[in-house]
Amino acid sequence: MGRSDQYPSVLQTVPGPGDFRGPRMVPGILPLEVRRVSLDMGSRRLLDDLNFTVKSGSFTIILGPNGAGKSLTLRLCHGLLRPTVGEVLWRGIAAREVPKHQTMVFQRPMMLRRSVTANIEYGLRLQGMGRRQRRERIAEVLKLAGLEALAGRAARSLSIGEQQRVAIARAWALRPQVLFLDEPAANLDPSATRAIEGVLRAVHNSGTKIVMSTHDLPQAKRLADEILFLHRGRLLEQSSADTFFDNPVTTEAQAFVEGELLW
């Protein structure tokens, strides 16, 4: 977990470890290995020879300036994009289209034109979950995401910050082992950001592996155990948060940590 844990209001509602894990019978899908992955679109190489492994336990942040390739990397890991070169392996097995037990929250939350509850229920229905269990699960995640008061509202009438929490609740309701999040707090004000980060801590504490992108250095410092530093489609560093922030190796990472503008 990150360095500071000053979010008591949400943390109080955090269940003990195990409460929100996937069913015990499901074998772990981690580690996730990204091996020599490159991605071309047209004649442009957007991601260049990425190599990294994601293991369970830590809060992993993909950090980098705008246009670094964070979103593309997440979409590759999640399974929405195929690499041009290289492979994405889950526990040594090549990924099919959007493998199970892992979900993603996109930068712009996509709300179905339904109530908050129906949005969360949608994903559960797709998994074929029975009605009673759905009810229980929905109640759980509404509480965890602090959305109880908004349960019946039309999802699209909510603020972006609230919609983002619905998106996280919807993804988390599936009890994924891994949750990818693409800049979930971009363009949010401090209090909405704080609310999102609180929910993310709760998700992390429940045992779900988080892999999240951000370009926001202070946010990375608050949350990360581990940093993947991307710059212009290349992975320049993978290290623990302490090492990265105290002793960045590459000049690009040094400049980024010192707050210089990078692109």
Partner: peptide
């Protein structure tokens, strides 16, 4: 608008058509 999210949630194309028709 919906493609990424519906594919992400694991909706097949037939299901996606129904979802879109409703929404």
């Amino acid at each position: 608008e919906y493609e990424d999210q519906l594919r992400s949630l694991g909706a097949g194309r037939g299901r996606a058509i129904l979802t879109l028709a409703w929404d």
